[in-house]
Amino acid sequence: MKLPAFAYACPETLEEAVALLAAGAGTAKALSGGQSLLPTMAFRLVAPSLLVDLRKLPGLDRISLGEDGVRLGAKVRWRDIERDARLASAHPLLARAVAHVAHYQIRNRGTVGGNLAHADPAAEMPGVAVTCDAELALTGSKGTRVVRAADFFLGPLSTVLADDELIVEVRLPAWPPGRRWGFEEFALRRGDFALAGVAAYYDPDAEGIARNAHIGVIGACHRAHRLARAEAALNGRAADEQAILASAEVAAAEVDPPTDLHASAAYRRALVQTLLERALLRAAS
């Protein structure tokens, strides 16, 4: 479990970092919190020739709130989100979901950008990003492009990021007052990756009818994604127990979960149903 040999660079500008990645032509890797990259190197599953440490890049560690929503720089750590009291009202779903991420030491280092780039299907941040229609700003040698979270993730540990691209920012649209929301996940121990998890919200209209339902799944999927049919089952209905149970049942049928050591597909399906029921009941209460 010793790292294979690699070269190391610690550029001070984004341009420099991108140039180094471009020169590496796929064999260079960005190093952010190192909480996923270094273990995979220690297991010798990957052996990059060059690590480009993002530590000194300026301006990527800010959480900014504005009219258009919440912007998280790529180097924002879980700890920063947890400690930012403004987020409790500016984006309660984000704050709640991130509380489930990993353990103390990892939370002190792990970053939003590294997490999104790593694209673990069970990770919370991609779930929040996809559910909330977030956008990711990616900078590469050809400049900056903006990609919808829904289009960013391709599958387990796979994204549309080009070899020379860095995530610089994730933009979560503004969170309206009165929004109803819930986040539930099931992990075997506190801080473990979720076997299944759901993020959900809707905006009730004046009559209490659920509108704009957004329901996303993590863990019980190959990449975080929204559940259109479960959303449809809720939209346009009063969010009562009956509607909630119906939506949860649809969600269980809609997901296509993997089977692994800790959970069969059938079990994950059942978890999605239970978790969505609980998330929506919480949202409605």
Partner: peptide, 11 residues
């Protein structure tokens, strides 16, 4: 007595 085992037993 893993959660998955208990769930499958109940199921």
């Amino acid at each position: 007595l893993a959660p998955q085992r208990i769930w499958h037993l109940i199921d």
